[in-house]
Design a protein around this nucleic acid. Sequence first.
DNA 1: GATGAATGAGTTTTCATTCAT
DNA 2: TATGAATGAAAACTCATTCAT
Lengths: 204, 204, 204, 204
Amino acid sequence: MNVHSFVCKFVFIRLIMDKKQAILKSVLRLVKRDGFYHLNMKKIAEEAGIAAGTIYLYFKGKEDVINALYKMIVTDFNQKVLDGYIESRSVKENFHEMLNNAIQFYLKERDYFSFIEQYTYAPFLFKENQDENFMLLLPIYKMMKEGKKQKVIKNLPDAILLSLIHGSMNTILKLHLAHKTDLNKKGIKQRFYDACWEAIAIAS
Amino acid sequence: MNVHSFVCKFVFIRLIMDKKQAILKSVLRLVKRDGFYHLNMKKIAEEAGIAAGTIYLYFKGKEDVINALYKMIVTDFNQKVLDGYIESRSVKENFHEMLNNAIQFYLKERDYFSFIEQYTYAPFLFKENQDENFMLLLPIYKMMKEGKKQKVIKNLPDAILLSLIHGSMNTILKLHLAHKTDLNKKGIKQRFYDACWEAIAIAS
Amino acid sequence: MNVHSFVCKFVFIRLIMDKKQAILKSVLRLVKRDGFYHLNMKKIAEEAGIAAGTIYLYFKGKEDVINALYKMIVTDFNQKVLDGYIESRSVKENFHEMLNNAIQFYLKERDYFSFIEQYTYAPFLFKENQDENFMLLLPIYKMMKEGKKQKVIKNLPDAILLSLIHGSMNTILKLHLAHKTDLNKKGIKQRFYDACWEAIAIAS
Amino acid sequence: MNVHSFVCKFVFIRLIMDKKQAILKSVLRLVKRDGFYHLNMKKIAEEAGIAAGTIYLYFKGKEDVINALYKMIVTDFNQKVLDGYIESRSVKENFHEMLNNAIQFYLKERDYFSFIEQYTYAPFLFKENQDENFMLLLPIYKMMKEGKKQKVIKNLPDAILLSLIHGSMNTILKLHLAHKTDLNKKGIKQRFYDACWEAIAIAS
DNA sequence: GATGAATGAGTTTTCATTCAT
DNA sequence: TATGAATGAAAACTCATTCAT
């Protein structure tokens, strides 16, 4: 492979990725705006500024688009959230960091949250692997385990701890997006993190 | 009105109600089984044991069916859950009672939960009134207010308290339905209730 | 089942059959006129005077329509042609009768021939069962066997006899439909039958 | 024109021809394998190891490819079959030779037969000239005429003679390709040729 | 010449809704 | 009321052809 063909290949891959990304981003916006129910290939194409047929060059069909988007978000999420995990830090610090990362992630990428919520609760729709639903929770599991070992987190069943953390995060985000609260208001996030930590931590 | 016409009218109304209910129950089962995405009028009719056209005698159309079902569930839920609220009891007792009622409600009517989840995250789909989404939370709001007044519940913003209660309940139910935990196993529910209460209560 | 419901059911079945038949007849006409390649569901619907969606009430899809039509023709053909077979008659008489029946069948139902020809030579198109292609030849096989037993037909391999009979019939029909000959002209059919018989018969 | 440009032109033409041939051969293989119905430009390109757009450098479009292939086969066929015709030989010998040539031609180029059959029965598809369908029959016509003149072939209408020869040849090839007989088995071809000759010849 | 991504018209198929019975 | 066949608009998907590179 000479330099020229290498450059060509690189440009080629970039363009491909850009179009794939453009399609996925369109879906994201549309699902947020109109919901899964009103999603259709024509709209996706329009939103992405391409022809309907073009989608089929990059995806097998509608389900494939949806599943690819889900995978992209999960990958992105886990990467961004796990970024905050540093072995040497205390569990509490890691907890704060990860919860903050997760919240920031969804606040920044508002459409992600809306998509994930709708994807998660659509049984048998587009789901290749039902268990993937819980992939998003992996970082939290890891942190919980360590906390229990160090006896800073209550010795409750994982499901209960998970509910207190993930569930409350989910709901506060929903309330934020529905303008029932404002996570960007000074102090709110911190109070939420503290309340969550108190919920699962052994009082010192 | 003679006795005969009275009886006729009574029977007539009963039949109407039965068929309406049959349709709604069909939707419930189908949404649980196949998800919103695969729901269609023919399936609803088949599941209800009637003809497709018959649905239109009782509902304006598909959206009307969905919305009617949502309202039915909300009404049912609020009634069953508020049933547990007794003014004279302590906030803690009322909290336990209501959380238990809510959990029992969804455990008994498993399809309700699945439907509510999917309905909630389908923006602008079938939604006449976006605020209705929060109708389910009314009993909780009432209890929180009283608890704060009596200084047994932390003086946190409603959104945070709500998240800790409603969000964690939601998630534990999801985990239960996905067989990641078993709320029917002895002690689990109680531990969950206690953990929730600790999360929001002022330590005594 | 009372008389009324019996009548209803009868009428019901008749209507169904009529529409199914109407669709198949449309396909027949279109395949003759425009060929398989230009066949599409919209045209079929138009030709049958119904909406496109209606076809899907009677058939699973395009392939199902085509295969159903093939089966209909084969059934019809075998019935009409075998009608001419009478055990007590001589092999020669039976041969004449069946060849005549086959030719008359296709002359009467010109579209059948065109369809069968196109269906037969479209490998893997719509074919559920490749061997069905030879179902049409069953009556001929039967006659050949008897003729060989009675030593009035040459002791040639079945494939050769079949070719002389079926192949030449096919070709003369094609020539007729392409106006290269006219089977309706007096004496032509008889001369063809005799030539065929001479081709396979032991000279007496 | 200097030597260099001559060589260049020669190479150029060769490449052109090679690619054209490669495309036609691809179509041949695909039509045999999947049938006309499943033929598409992308498949043709893939099978030929070129890009889809390249086909349009050599042909006007899909129909042009198909028609060009048909013409190629007809030309090839007539050349190979007429090769066997020698004025000085007897009609019988010429008949044997030509029938043998035709059979050998199709046995060697199995895909040709499949293509021709499907092309022939696709009315108005790709057909510039309906009469071309009978181009393949020219060598036979010639032989028949001579045979009738010499009174070695029955004085039957051309259509009948043609049917007995061409039709039976067609069918035996079909049976061979469908594995209902085996023309490569010793003696079968010879028995077939003899049976055909007996069918059209005046018994001596 | 060669490519193959992009197009968009055309195709198959689905499905909410209507309406004659 | 109840039916379910029929509709037709809209959806998903295909593919011959074009064109910038």
